[in-house]
């Protein structure tokens, strides 16, 4: 799909694009190097060192990685994050698709609803985390006699609610855009053929919005893995680091160690590889089911 995007342009335009491409790419490229590539190379390099501050480092080879593999808390956080991500991807995508589906049905005031659903996305994760902590704690203390800091199950559910609430609006916008672009002729033709609502959805709408489903699952999957501020603000890993997700685990092992931050760095590198592998394979599988491939 991507390779054909310029096919409708004239020769002259293509030339212009080719000529001016560097101008448009350069600032982004510089930002990419400064903001991503350079820190990443540094991080990779530091993961082989024992260090506390960047100016005093000692080479230790793979020692940091060995320590990570022997760290139960890392494995626990990994599994916790995996389960969390699977559930949150499902919940977020199902709900945002449903909301988008109904908000494209000419319901009265749907523009207002779209804005309302999108708003939580504009608030930062830390603020949301504290707000939801207050709300949820008040409810849990009153009705369940416990609290987020006492029961990991509530912490887990709270995290799902918080993250869903924050992200549904965002994915809803993507789905709305996709749903509005489903070719009307296809729907009409299917209706004439006697398809009912369910069949329409299954055979026409969903295949047509598959690219959006790809992008949304991809984004929500990596989002789920990278959750940090919400986790820090809502539970901070309590109780006993049982609600500590990967990013928070890395952060904690980085700052808790008074002698060697290299272990945290090694965790971060492993984390990067895992997220890339999962995201790419997911992208590959969903792509293969898209219309037009």
């Amino acid at each position: 799909m991507v390779k054909n995007t310029t096919s409708h342009l004239g020769n002259h335009q293509k030339k212009a694009i080719r000529r001016y491409a560097p101008i448009f790419l350069f600032p982004t490229f510089i930002a990419f190097v400064i903001g991503f590539l350079w820190p990443f190379i540094w991080g990779l390099y530091l993961s082989f060192f024992r260090f506390r501050t960047l100016s005093k480092t000692t080479f230790v080879g793979f020692q940091n990685y060995v320590k990570v593999l022997n760290d139960d808390s890392f494995l626990y956080s990994f599994i916790f994050t995996l389960v969390f991500t699977l559930i949150s991807v499902l919940v977020i995508n199902l709900l945002s698709f449903t909301v988008a589906f109904f908000l494209t049905k000419n319901i009265k005031g749907s523009t207002v609803f779209r804005t309302v659903f999108f708003l939580p996305n504009l608030i930062g994760g830390i603020v949301l985390g504290y707000l939801w902590k207050i709300i949820l704690d008040a409810l849990i203390i009153k009705y369940l006699g416990s609290s987020l800091a006492l029961n990991a199950a509530y912490g887990f559910i709270g995290l799902i609610i918080l993250v869903s609430w924050q992200q549904i609006g965002y994915f809803m916008i993507i789905y709305i855009a996709a749903l509005q672009n489903v070719p009307h002729e296809h729907i009409e033709a299917a209706k004439i053929d006697g398809a009912n609502g369910m069949q329409l959805l299954k055979n026409i709408t969903i295949p047509a919005v598959m690219p959006s489903i790809t992008i949304c699952t991809f984004l929500s999957l990596t989002n789920g893995f990278k959750i940090f501020d919400q986790n820090l603000a809502l539970t901070a890993g309590k109780p006993y680091n049982m609600t500590e997700m990967l990013a928070l685990n890395i952060y904690n092992s980085f700052y808790e160690s008074s002698t060697n931050m290299g272990v945290g760095q090694a965790k971060a590198v492993i984390f990067f590889i895992v997220v890339v592998v999962i995201a790419l394979s997911q992208l590959y599988f969903t792509r293969s089911r898209e219309v037009g491939n």
């Binding site: 504290y130 704690d137 008040a138 203390i141 006699g145 416990s146 609290s147 006492l150």
Partner: peptide, 8 residues
């Protein structure tokens, strides 16, 4: 005692 962890 059960509200002891509350931020409030």
């Amino acid at each position: 005692p059960n509200t002891i962890t509350s931020e409030q």
